[in-house]
Amino acid sequence: MARAGVSLDDAVRERFRPTVMAHEQVLPALEVLADLLPGRGLQRGSVIATRGPAAMSIGLALMAGASAAGSWLGVVGLPSIGLSAVSELGIALERVFLVAAPPPQRWAETVAAVADGAELVLARVPAQLRASDMRRVQSRLSTRGTVLVLAGLDEQAGIQPDLVVGTAAPQWEGINDGQGRLLARQVQIEVGGRRAGRPLRRLLWLPASDGSISAVTTITASRPTSASGGGDLLEQAG
């Protein structure tokens, strides 16, 4: 019964595909990140991997725009995610549900079920994932138009993300030798992957001292900075 419904749905989709607007195929992203993304948003049905020392933060930041616009986020197998940070990075927690890590052989089934209900899925891939499982998940993602973000995914056989967002060279501001506290972080973002065009780089505040996510202005970026001496930088960024 349900299967018949899906195939009908597909038939209708097939028929009407030419009239789907381009902007309906992407989920909105924050303004500062949109410039880096093909289609200025998260391509529906795509798999995005984030890497590097700020992998989790950038993964969440990528989804913040869509979450604010009403999309649900399903988190699979990340029981130790810092929910305060999730909220601070702009995810609407009232539209978040967390799913406990399923056994590896049921990972694909679980992620597919989550993708049915949420337009955003944040997951961690089990160590030995079969390529066929990943394909199954990807086909479900494209049917439902869901975006899967794999935070902190290193190179793994069988997974070819559509977009790879790398983070590098994090520099923290506001903290010194025994003084101050963590206040803001500059991170180098690089967007690549098979669906991206030529790799794009940008220096971001993730987050800035006021909690927002913003681009580092060129003046600040060009000046050499050290992790410990950020007093004047903060003023410029704020």
Partner: peptide
């Protein structure tokens, strides 16, 4: 979206 999420949660 809320309706779908609700259904998926029940299913999971």
């Amino acid at each position: 979206a809320d309706e779908w999420a609700q259904r998926a949660i029940t299913r999971l």
